[in-house]
Design a protein around this nucleic acid. Structure first.
Lengths: 159, 159
DNA sequence: ATTTATATTTCATATTACGAAATATAATTC
DNA sequence: GAATTATATTTCGTAATATGAAATATAAAT
């Protein structure tokens, strides 16, 4: 027994997911990168002392997958690998200037939309959307990304 | 220059996307299917006279990709293929009883969680979330593809 | 010194995903 | 009604994604 309002919300949520999805794709297309490559490149550029392990954890991919994707990014001269001095087991990943350029050239679509369309809305509507989206995120039960990068521990099992 | 409220909304939106993504993955893991296989199986089970073309359109995959995934679902005895009598170019796809069983056994966790928690909220809050989510979907700019039957997270495109 | 833990890569393998070309059927046009 | 055009799906070749298990290397603990 599902209320009318709940199913309407789910429907809207699906639209949101679909739109976000499409955005990532179009974005990847414009950069010449695959979505996964783009995600990894962003993670690398977005943090300090980024290692393959950190990226894997953040994106919920296996280490082997990250290695393969970083291989490609290095081959494309978008990323460099260097051993850490402090702990020689670790590889430090950094975006090259070309890598950063690509990210700048193909900015986050969601962010774009928000800086344009969202800010065109009246304040009360912005507030309503913010409140609704935050509550929605709460309901779906994922903690704050900054605070808890690890809550979501469900790697895919393909056995 | 980005407003505080816009970036907060963006942040909440990212939490939502993350939750949806994680949900689909965990779900696929429990069924023993890959996320893509699960999405395709759902599309097939969820409609009437489902053809590869319809599935491709709904999920925004190429026909070739759908063919490959359906091949696997058929090999797993979760789906059957049969030529349409009306139009012999078309292949009608149907979930087998085993295919339906899998879907029932592994219901959409996100939807489940959502339904339970959402209905526990007071009516005014439900209304606010609905309004916010619908506006958000409008802003993100995708039309209402009405019957998109299920939460849709993460197929990959490499163009 | 040995053991245990951590970080990453290599390897083998399955799957995803695509575009282009091929195949088959249906609908349209002449 | 034959030729053309459109539609639906598959096949083919190819690249990338993603995994688990094993290998490698370093660090930390006993």
């Amino acid at each position: 027994m599902e209320s009318e309002i709940a199913s309407a919300t789910l429907k809207a949520l699906r639209r949101v997911l679909r739109a976000a999805e499409g955005g990532t794709r179009r974005l990847a297309a414009t950069t010449g990168l695959t979505p996964s490559q783009l995600l990894v490149l962003r993670e690398i550029d977005g943090g300090e002392d980024v290692t393959p392990g950190v990226v894997a954890q953040r994106l919920q991919f296996s280490h082997a997958t990250i290695t393969a994707i970083v291989d490609r990014l290095v081959a494309l001269d978008l990323v460099t690998r260097a051993r850490s001095d402090r702990d020689k087991r670790r590889m430090l990943l950094e975006a090259t200037s070309e890598g950063r350029r690509r990210l700048v050239e193909a900015p986050d679509m969601l962010q774009e939309i928000f800086s344009v369309r969202f800010s065109a809305l009246p304040a009360w509507e912005q507030a309503m959307i913010l409140a609704g989206t935050e509550r929605l995120a709460d309901i779906l039960g994922v903690g704050d990304m900054d605070a808890a990068p690890l809550l979501d521990a469900g790697p895919i099992d393909r056995s």
